[in-house]
Design a protein around this nucleic acid. Structure first.
Lengths: 187, 187
DNA sequence: GTCTATAGATCGATAGAC
DNA sequence: GTCTATCGATCTATAGAC
């Protein structure tokens, strides 16, 4: 063990998984203390703002990951390669829908009201990067907007579908379908 | 007022809205008591099994509504008309994504484990009815399966998208896109 | 910076009177 | 069937010793 001192950067991914599993309300401080192995006071020392600050740190961490690994490639790579890269990255990240999209889940209940800005930015950034990429691929403005919405809704819905049915392949099938539709248009 | 006696049938829709707004964990008994105007004891008299039984009643109520208003038409009506009817019914029911799919939301966190059977049945029934309808419309087995997944994922994801961005038209656009794709194939 | 102990509020659920 | 009162557990958050 290199160091025993807890750092936010070590804890944030654990917090993310706990919020994913239990939801914002369901992830109690007690659960977090047990799962992280941190004492209550250590936790509040790292996150003086309590649970709200923990969730904000998690959302910020997720936003930065997507910005680096999904949005930036969408903006910078060649359109076909960018879309291909996005589908692969997303497929890995959500692990066949076993791992949910925390931002999407937060959007569904009253938790949304506490993190409206973070949620809105995440989805708008994704939609904008996707739309821009599709325009560069030759779509009209209207087509790009429609396609971007179709793709992002498909990804989010694919996660719901896979978790609800317990069948991981549902997610992969939806992704493959979206991918095939883009490959078709690209020709 | 025709009667003062509380009945499950009167309370269940209110419970549904509360679970939609706050989630299963977030919808505390205190909130439910305040919102329904019922006393704690009246509530537990109607639902001796407590919150779990309330949610089961809500899920059962939803399942029956969809069975009547969506799945049965999908099975019984002419394929084109059935799909058209489904998109209209769903669009009204979810009110542009302002009203979420409670079953889908429950599927995303640990709540799923408590209601796995109800959630699975709802989604499988929907997928099966949709798939069967698409086969009657002339799709191959594989196509029907893919299309059914695409449509249901699109609906679920459209709700997430609309709520996350706060833009109701995102939901309507996704539904219109799905509808157009089916009309295209029907020709 | 981490520990134990606990405050103060709220949780789900129940008892007993009427 | 509905009321008030309240149980014991759990909740988020903090205090104070080290």
């Amino acid at each position: 063990m290199a160091r025993m001192i807890a750092e936010k950067s070590d804890i944030t991914p654990m917090l993310a998984e706990l919020f994913r599993r239990h939801g914002y309300e369901g992830a109690s401080i007690g659960i977090i203390v047990s799962a992280t192995g941190l004492g209550r006071s250590s936790l509040y020392h790292l996150f003086p703002g309590g649970k709200q600050e923990m969730a904000t740190a998690v959302l910020d961490h997720i936003a930065r990951w997507f910005d680096e690994n999904v949005f930036a490639p969408l903006r910078g790579m060649a359109p076909d390669a960018a879309l291909d890269h996005m589908f692969s990255a997303v497929s890995d990240y959500f692990r066949g829908g076993q791992r949910i999209c925390l931002v999407g889940a937060f959007a569904l209940d009253a938790t949304r009201d506490s993190f409206a800005q973070e949620i809105q930015t995440y989805f708008n950034d994704w939609l904008t990067a996707l739309e821009q990429c599709l325009r560069r691929a030759g779509h009209s403005d209207a087509q790009a907007r429609t396609e971007a919405q179709r793709i992002l809704a498909g990804i989010q819905g694919g996660i719901v579908l896979a978790r609800a049915t317990g069948e991981e392949q549902r997610f992969h099938a939806v992704i493959a379908d979206l991918r095939a539709a883009q490959a078709q248009i690209a020709k």
